[in-house]
């Protein structure tokens, strides 16, 4: 099958404003007061995607490793920033350990996928590395915020249990083993659930994209299988490392629970 994509012209793109108009009318009729958000959201969608489009085009054309990796670092930093917004705990600083473990884990997994499994040469070839790494970072961002949220809330809710064990001579690892397990499990479950539902409930975005751009569905599903499995690995590895490092910060060297 030869790639045959129908290009969307600027005029056709403009027609899409009709969709926003429909949403706007719904908001006005029901007095939801969402018109302003809709307008800002639409403008941001255009601006952000066009910006990313040009950045990607630039990075693809220049095709140098440091620029690709810089873009990856920026993606991870943006993900950490979003995680910070979602996780409300402020008494324990979790940004640096989160950033470092995401960077290490996701560089490894992305490089493994592009270099070994897809077999792109070199492994950082932007056309492969950036979209795949982007999916890893995006999915794991959700998983990591779930696990951090769970870690902090369980340490607080199960404070008496954790302190009971500390008082009986446990170190912080022993006292919070069960809490940590719950936090990692909570992060892994969504990606395992999606292994069960994929193809039946929804067609994943990447596969849809490839099919739309004319790729043989049988080629597209292979990519999708790779993506699904790499996401299981990255969400679990990411959550495991992040919660392990951040848990340490919830305790003082005197094996005392400091989070309140």
């Amino acid at each position: 099958m030869t790639p045959s994509i129908i290009e969307i012209t600027p005029l056709q793109l403009m027609l899409c404003f009709g969709f926003v108009l429909l949403a706007g009318i719904t908001s006005m009729v029901n007095r939801l007061g969402l018109e302003r958000d809709l307008l800002v959201g639409t403008i941001r969608t255009f601006a952000q995607l066009f910006l990313v489009g040009y950045v990607l085009k630039f990075v693809f054309e220049i095709n140098v490793s440091w620029l690709v990796l810089l873009m990856f670092v920026v993606m991870v930093a943006a993900a950490v920033h979003i995680i910070r917004g979602r996780v409300k705990e402020r008494s324990v600083s979790f940004l640096l350990p989160t950033f470092i473990s995401m960077l290490v884990t996701y560089t490894l997994i992305s490089a493994l996928v592009t270099g070994v499994i897809v077999g792109a040469k070199p492994w950082w070839t932007p056309q492969y590395f950036i979209p795949l790494a982007g999916m890893i970072v995006g999915n794991s961002m959700t998983a990591i915020s779930i696990s951090l949220d769970r870690l902090f809330s369980d340490l607080k809710a199960r404070r008496s249990e954790v302190e009971m064990m500390l008082a009986l001579g446990a170190d912080y690892r022993e006292a919070s083993q069960d809490v940590l397990r719950g936090a990692i499990k909570a992060a892994m479950i969504p990606s395992i659930n999606s292994l069960m539902a994929v193809g039946l409930v929804s067609l994943p975005g990447m596969m849809t994209g490839q099919i739309l751009s004319g790729v043989d569905p049988l080629v597209a599903i292979r990519y999708q299988v790779v993506v699904m499995l790499m996401l299981v690995a990255s969400t679990s590895m990411g959550a495991f490392l992040v919660t392990g490092l951040v848990r340490r910060r919830c305790f003082s060297p005197a094996q005392r629970l400091v989070i309140r």
């Binding site: 064990m165 009986l168 001579g169 446990a170 170190d171």
Partner: peptide, 9 residues
Amino acid sequence: LLPFSFKAN
């Protein structure tokens, strides 16, 4: 027996 499962004990 929980306390006896901790490394320190």
